[in-house]
Nucleic acid binder design. Structure first.
Lengths: 200, 200
DNA sequence: GTCTATATACAGATAGAC
DNA sequence: GTCTATCTGTATATAGAC
């Protein structure tokens, strides 16, 4: 299984675009990163814009499928929420700059959102609504709750430079802070669930 | 009180930089917005970089002082949290693109954070710690809680295009969603406070 | 397919008249 | 202080040899 030139370009372009954004990225940087010539980029993808669109689409599709599986597993509310938060945070640890890249790109050209799968959200919201009806979850707006969960997960990664400065933490301390995040988010979510067993 | 050319430039530059970011902004666009000639921008601010730094500093200082006042008022935990969330959301409604501008700018050049006041955070965290010790708030990590609150407030504004798409809402529906946000965030925070009165 | 060399476009910055 | 005209650098994109 050889690595084709196209693969090398895609790899390199992902790195540079995600790091620098469309406007900040330079074709020369991508070429350097791929260890090929700048002209080859155009040979394979015609233009910066077209290359960017490819990368964006790939990145969007890598975004949610893991979460989707979790949503469809059969777990009690808190267990499912825990799995979702964990899966989501895992993705963020592996791709800390992905959310801001996607967010920024969506401002630049909202039409790209057409390619973004939406069912995961719907399924999750449906699940939460059912959980409320069945008395496993306190009465909250499920849509609002999903956004709150995403916010609690994503924000410390997206706003990392500002947040670490605000908290007076260096890189290492902030990494530790992030690792404790799951427990603390679940601490909050716990309070929203209703303990049917009564034990604990 | 006349509007000086410098004022016009600053106004215009704020709008364009906040909207497009440093890389995306064009000096020509700023000049057009200010209804002056491009050369005048350089006459007043020498370079794009210098103009940007000015704007950034101004925007950073407009960011938190309102919150600071609230933190220093004498209110019970939930009341203070409510005031903070409200003030914060108000600022976000008035400046929806400010956070992403600041975040993105901080990635570009982290040294700008030196100009960002930090005491507000410290004060708030101290306050929360005290509230926990005095039994008004459940045992959570105050730093984590502050980040969670910020995340819940900021995320739906920062990620607006993606979030509205995910939820299948148009502009108007999403605005309504945002207006309900305060109540829902407080709903979550309520569960973290300890009702000393015992009523309700 | 891959390279070097070059064309083209445009943005930031300056010169100089008024 | 404000303008028009221009310079200079640099980024995307193409031509053409190998």
């Amino acid at each position: 299984m050889e690595v084709t030139t196209e693969d090398k370009i895609i790899q390199a372009a992902e790195k540079i675009f995600v790091r620098d954004g469309y406007d900040g990225a330079r074709m020369q940087d991508i070429a350097n990163e791929a260890e090929i010539n700048k002209a080859l980029l155009h040979y394979y993808f015609r233009s910066k814009e077209k290359l960017f669109q490819q990368i964006l689409r790939r990145k969007m599709q890598a975004f949610l499928p893991k979460i989707q599986k979790i949503v469809h597993t059969d777990l009690p509310v808190l267990g499912k929420l825990e799995a979702i938060v964990e899966g989501y945070l895992q993705m963020l640890f592996a791709n800390p700059r992905l959310p801001i890249f996607l967010i920024y790109s969506a401002y630049r050209d909202p039409s790209i959102l057409e390619h973004m799968p939406r069912e995961i959200f719907d399924d999750l919201i449906r699940f939460l609504r059912k959980a409320i009806k069945e008395g496993e979850l306190k009465k909250v707006d499920p849509e609002q709750l999903v956004v709150s969960i995403m916010g609690m997960c994503v924000f410390p990664f997206v706003a990392r430079p500002i947040a670490s400065h605000m908290l007076g933490k260096d890189e290492e301390q902030y990494s530790i802070f992030l690792k404790k995040r799951k427990k603390e988010i679940l601490r909050v979510l716990e309070e929203l669930t209703i303990d049917s067993g009564g034990d604990k």
